[in-house]
């Protein structure tokens, strides 16, 4: 197949190094492609989650180490598209797609997708959508991990005798954040850079910056 000669438009005037805030069609479609792809990943992860979590049952908060996968679409989409809202859009869409495929969590998963996306978004907001390197990726991993921990802990594991703060709440949060930083932040940025090296991101700032 020949190179893509005709590239998508960018109507807005753009400062070098700082993409415009307005979403181009290609931003929307590629963010959606990531959302759909991770929706399928969510679906598969939901299937194996129970099996993978079982051996971790000796210390229940440890299962949080598997949570990072759910935080990937938001961080990856934001690192790639670099527009405010990319994380929320891709993350929510991923959750919606996993719901359509049959999710054991029902419609709540969409709320999760949105909150997890907002969590990732916060990391990029804190760096004012100017930096998309390791520091931002790790920061977004932390904020995304915190967002889902807060939701999980308040919905399913409220601090109580059954779920004491020191023995459950804290380690659960720590494990989620570690998992999120490694999978969403580090692996996410590696994924975006690997995509950039294939030339597939030529329409994006993420595909043109030398790394």
């Amino acid at each position: 197949m020949a190179e893509q000669a005709v590239r998508p438009s960018s109507v807005d005037a753009v400062e070098p190094g700082r993409p415009g805030v307005r979403w181009r069609t290609v931003d929307i479609v590629v963010a959606a492609v990531l959302g759909v792809a991770f929706g399928v990943v969510f679906w598969a992860w939901n299937l194996v989650f129970g099996v993978l979590a079982a051996p971790l049952d000796f210390f229940p908060p440890l299962s949080a180490i598997l949570n990072g996968v759910y935080l990937m679409p938001g961080v990856v989409a934001a690192l790639l598209v670099r527009k405010p809202g990319a994380a929320v859009f891709a993350s929510t869409l991923a959750a919606a797609v996993s719901l359509l495929l049959g999710s054991p969590y029902g419609l709540v998963i969409v709320v999760y997708g949105m909150v997890q996306g907002l969590g990732g978004e916060l990391g990029f907001l804190l760096t004012r959508y100017r930096h998309f390197g390791w520091a931002t990726a790790v920061l977004a991993g932390v904020t995304a991990g915190l967002s889902t921990s807060i939701l999980d802990l308040s919905l399913y594991y409220p601090v109580s005798q059954e779920y004491p703060f020191w023995a459950f709440t804290l380690p659960y949060t720590v494990f989620t954040v570690i998992s999120s930083v490694l999978l969403a932040g580090v692996l996410g940025l590696l994924l975006v850079r690997a995509l950039a090296r294939t030339g597939a991101l030529s329409s994006f700032a993420a595909g043109r910056t030398r790394v």
């Binding site: 893509q4 590239r7 959606a32």
Partner: peptide, 24 residues
């Protein structure tokens, strides 16, 4: 990963085709 590369490329071309039909 190979599929993701293909999807992103296709997505970019699709966006162009949509713009060419006035989506933007």
């Amino acid at each position: 990963f190979a599929l993701l590369v293909s999807a992103v490329r296709r997505g970019s071309r699709l966006a162009t085709a949509m713009d060419a039909r006035g989506f933007d």
